[in-house]
Simulated assay, not measured.
Amino acid sequence: MKTNAARILEQQQVPYELLTYDVDPQDLAAERAADKLGLPYEQVFKTLVVRGDCSGVCFAVIPANARLDLKALAKMSDNKKVETVPLKEVQSLTGYIRGGVTALGSKKPYPVFLDISATQFNSIAVSAGKRGHMLMVSPTTYQITVQGTIGAITHKLC
Rank of each mutant, 00 (worst) to 15 (best):
M1L: 12
T3K: 09
T3H: 03
T3N: 10
R7D: 12
R7A: 12
L9G: 01
E10A: 15
Q11W: 06
Q11H: 11
Q12R: 15
Q13A: 15
Q13M: 12
P15T: 07
E17C: 10
E17S: 12
L18K: 07
T20E: 15
T20R: 11
Y21I: 05
Y21F: 12
V23Y: 03
V23W: 00
P25Y: 04
Q26I: 04
D27P: 08
D27Q: 11
L28M: 06
E31R: 14
E31N: 09
R32L: 13
A33V: 04
A33H: 01
K36L: 14
L37H: 02
L39G: 02
P40K: 04
Y41S: 06
F45T: 00
K46R: 08
L48H: 04
L48V: 02
V49L: 14
V50C: 12
D53P: 04
C54H: 13
C54G: 00
F59V: 03
A60S: 09
A60R: 08
A60Q: 07
I62K: 05
P63W: 03
P63G: 08
A66R: 07
R67W: 04
L70R: 14
L70G: 03
L70Q: 13
K71V: 04
K71Y: 06
L73Y: 02
D78A: 12
D78Q: 13
K80N: 13
K80V: 06
K81R: 15
V82E: 03
V82C: 13
V82Q: 06
E83I: 09
P86R: 09
P86E: 10
P86N: 08
L87R: 11
L87N: 12
K88N: 12
V90G: 02
V90A: 13
Q91T: 09
S92V: 11
T94W: 03
T94D: 09
G95S: 09
I97L: 13
G100H: 01
G100K: 11
A103H: 05
L104Q: 10
K108R: 14
K108H: 12
P109G: 00
Y110W: 11
Y110R: 11
F113N: 07
F113R: 10
D115Y: 01
I116M: 11
I116S: 14
S117L: 13
A118N: 07
F121E: 07
S123K: 13
S123T: 08
I124Y: 03
A125D: 06
A125E: 04
A125R: 04
V126D: 06
K130P: 01
G132S: 01
G132H: 06
M134L: 10
M136N: 07
M136V: 00
V137A: 04
V137M: 07
T141L: 15
T141K: 14
Y142F: 15
Q143M: 14
Q143D: 05
I144N: 15
T145N: 04
V146M: 10
V146L: 11
Q147I: 07
Q147S: 15
G148R: 10
I150T: 08
G151R: 06
G151P: 02
G151L: 00
A152S: 14
I153Q: 08
I153N: 01
T154V: 13
T154L: 10
T154A: 12
H155P: 01
K156Q: 14
K156Y: 13
L157V: 09
